[in-house]
């Protein structure tokens, strides 16, 4: 995974392959954070459908890197405080993408004690 990690600035708009590469690196880093169960696509479904068409159906990262910022949507478990998990996620994203603005959407909090 380390070969995908870069401290360079995030890809500029219009540089889709570079943004995707950075997005995949962010996906991998985020999924390694304790308490993170899964990633959901950060972009709306309609936008992803357009991207799929434009990219000939190629796999795309769940993270969105755009306009110099990174956005992720995550499912986490409730064992750790959400705020702490988000702080750790922000740190991991910045290890990969540099000091970029980070938006984290917690879309699912799973209770493990069922």
């Amino acid at each position: 995974m380390s070969d995908r990690i870069s401290s360079s600035a995030p890809a500029e708009d219009g540089d889709a392959p570079a943004a995707d590469e950075l997005g995949f690196a962010i996906d991998a880093a985020v999924l390694a954070v304790p308490g993170v169960q899964r990633l959901f696509p950060a972009d709306p479904a309609a936008l992803r459908a357009l991207q799929q068409v434009a990219g000939d159906g190629a796999a795309r990262p769940a993270s969105a890197v755009r306009s110099g910022s990174a956005t992720i949507s995550v499912a986490i478990d409730d064992a750790l405080p959400t705020r702490e998990v988000c702080d750790e996620l922000t740190a991991r994203v910045r290890e990969v993408a540099g000091p970029v603005p980070v938006e984290i959407r917690v879309s699912r909090i799973h209770v493990d004690r069922l």
Binding site: C86, E103, I104, R108, V111
Partner: peptide, 28 residues
């Protein structure tokens, strides 16, 4: 949104996620 995350970070939890958290917590 979580408060006080700074200008370059934003954390939010969806209402749907909160409702399901409460449901699963009760079911547990």
């Amino acid at each position: 949104p979580f408060p006080d995350t700074g200008e370059d970070a934003r954390y939010v939890v969806t209402e749907g996620a909160i409702r399901q958290l409460l449901r699963e917590t009760g079911d547990a």
